[in-house]
Design a protein around this nucleic acid. Sequence first.
DNA 1: TTCTTAAGACGAGCAACATTGGTTTTAAGA
DNA 2: TCTTAAAACCAATGTTGCTCGTCTTAAGAA
Lengths: 192, 192
Amino acid sequence: MSPYPAQVNREAIIRRAREILEAQGVERLTLQYLAAQLGIQAPSLYRYFKNKNELLRAVNEETGRHLIAAIQAAATRGGPETRILNMARAYREFARQQPVTYSLAFASAQPDVRPAPDALEGLILPIQKAMADVVGEANSLPALRGMLALLHGFVSLELSERFQRGSDFDATYDAVVAAYLRGWQEAKQTLS
Amino acid sequence: MSPYPAQVNREAIIRRAREILEAQGVERLTLQYLAAQLGIQAPSLYRYFKNKNELLRAVNEETGRHLIAAIQAAATRGGPETRILNMARAYREFARQQPVTYSLAFASAQPDVRPAPDALEGLILPIQKAMADVVGEANSLPALRGMLALLHGFVSLELSERFQRGSDFDATYDAVVAAYLRGWQEAKQTLS
DNA sequence: TTCTTAAGACGAGCAACATTGGTTTTAAGA
DNA sequence: TCTTAAAACCAATGTTGCTCGTCTTAAGAA
């Protein structure tokens, strides 16, 4: 096909970039270093990505796909409350296992490195579904948004060590998610 | 006192840096540009800050102080639930009015630019106090953490436009905060 | 008033970085 | 064997954070 078999491709670049991120941190992910790890020169990366931000966006969308997979795998069985708790745990587990890529993908202020919104739909859908079962269709959307905020907020604060340390985050997390759900269920009973 | 009256000082530098941040974005806050806006040269800034990260940390701690003032001003009157709702609204209002500085201070992944934990104690205390009144002392700490997560998470997702647009965020926010509080109150009743 | 002094500002320059343009290398297909 | 075009490279540029040594200036001592 091609008159010059490529030594790399987008997938390989993204994979290596994510490895560098988790193993050595964001600041080590320079184009020079990434290229060197791939056995090529930095300018060659521009064959595959318009610029560094586009590369980062691709990395973040890959992170999004992994997170989606983790969420979906956690929502296989049980009632809606159980599924939500399991998804919430999987969400936090994912962020704790891949803190650098998670932060880069979901806590970055830069607009042009964020995953495209529709690339994250698979993340929202299973949670939305279970939430609708728990709190009812009427409150489904605001309840979902609060849940996403709660998960992302807790994980962000935990990763950036803004909680005072010393207590059991696992139990706190479960309790917080449960409390939030209870609050919406209470509303449901009140309104119906 | 000094044999050479300074043309700038830490406060003036921090103030100008925050102006640049909100008016022109993070990427415009380079040492060269900041210095030029102050009428000095970039190397002179190193008289006042060890490096750029220390400058950013000072900027973020100033942002923290402003946020604390806004929170405290919002918690002056009313019962605990009212105070919490008002503080939550003030928190979001602050972040919406100063999105760049807020994101830099509280959504940044860089550890060494984050405000020192004890610099944010004034932020936590009033919320903690009101939370204790609402959910009881026993659950006070986990409930507080969940509340902080909820506020920060909601604001972060809203600022980074990760909610699908089109609905009333004001009402959603209030409803979400109220639901979370209700959930803990429910637990209190159940346990007592 | 003159002199000493040290803080404050500057100029020059470095290394790391992303990015670009032009050139060379390579292997597939004619 | 020759043509071709993709892939990789080399050289170079502009920007950035940062350092070093030097000069400038006004306060306080003489």
